[in-house]
């Protein structure tokens, strides 16, 4: 299937000389939730700003639905909705007026029924006649989503959608995003909340210092890069790891009463059975055990650290 967005060798150097993007290649699949992870200043916003037409690229090509974003800007932009990172709103307009304005701006005829549906879906209907300046921060964030959805886009960019948003609203936002994906909208989400990507994304891209470090399915990424650890609570303290168990590269806890075994989740044999057998043979008993898998956050931190 043709990717809905194809980015080739995209670079951006600002007038100040700062290189925000370095030859980025990326494909976004139709109907997926793609999370672009990266620390502040990594190039996330620059990348989506170029796709949306707000920033000019220095070199490279971006195709949306097979069409060049510059040559076919009308067709391309009418497919895209953008929710910016900052809460930039028309303070003096009503919720209804500013949402209707967005629909017209993107070339769609007035459709009060659609605007009503969008505002209801985002729990803004009761506030439709209120001035934007009277809304809370969370409501303003939802209003930005309503404006972006007013022209029924096929692609939605969410630039740090839950930055500064409380936990409850963040979960509401996630539900909204999932519902949008279920309705067929492709969603590109930039975030530095790993939890957000882990919760929602189908695929994850990690960007740092303008370079795309990897793009993987979230599950595959965690399988591939995720470490798993078996922690054994020992019956009796050990002074050191016996030489007979050296091949397992065990870590002995500070107080000598835990042993931690790190193993490869993709290996055919994890070595756990053999380890337990040999521990039994060496007379080392345990009273409890548990396993831990590294989170996307651990993976992300590792990757970004390597670029420093």
């Amino acid at each position: 299937m043709t990717p809905i967005i194809a980015v080739s060798n995209l670079s951006k150097t600002y007038a100040s000389g700062f290189q925000a993007l370095k030859r980025i290649n990326l494909e976004i699949r139709r109907g997926e939730i793609f999370a672009l992870l990266g620390p502040n200043g990594a190039g996330k916003t620059t990348l989506i700003s170029i796709v949306c037409g707000i920033v000019n690229p220095s070199e490279g090509e971006v195709l949306v639905d097979g069409r060049d974003i510059a040559a076919h800007y009308r067709a391309v932009r009418s497919m895209i909705g953008l929710v910016p990172q900052e809460l930039t709103t028309d303070a003096f307009e009503s919720v209804w007026a500013t949402t209707s304005f967005s629909r017209g701006l993107f070339g769609r005829p007035p459709n009060p029924a659609h605007i009503q549906k969008v505002l209801r879906d985002l729990s803004l209907w009761e506030k439709k006649d209120n001035r934007v300046m009277t809304l809370s921060g969370g409501m303003k964030r939802r209003l930005l989503i309503a404006k972006a959805l007013s022209h029924e886009p096929q692609i939605l960019f969410l630039d740090e959608p839950t930055a500064g948003v409380d936990v409850e609203l963040r979960k509401d936002m996630w539900n909204i995003v999932r519902a949008l994906r279920d309705s067929g909208v492709t969603i590109i989400l930039t975030t530095h909340y790993i939890e957000e990507a882990e919760e929602m994304a189908d695929r994850v891209g990690v960007i740092a210092k303008g370079e795309l470090l990897l793009v993987e399915g979230k599950e595959a990424l965690m399988r591939k890069l995720g470490r798993k650890q078996l922690t054994l609570q020992l019956r009796e303290r050990l002074a050191e790891v016996p030489a007979s168990l050296a091949k397992y590269k065990l870590e002995l806890g500070a107080e000598g009463n835990t042993l931690v075994y790190t193993y490869d989740t993709q290996a055919e044999r994890t070595g756990i059975t053999a380890l337990l057998d040999e521990m039994g043979g060496a007379g080392i008993g345990f009273v409890d055990l548990h396993t831990d898998q590294s989170s996307l956050e651990d993976i992300f931190v590792d990757l970004v650290r390597k670029t420093r």
């Binding site: 949306c52 037409g53 009418s78 953008l82």
Partner: peptide
Amino acid sequence: YELLSAPV
């Protein structure tokens, strides 16, 4: 941003 990203 909205004006710049619109098909106008």
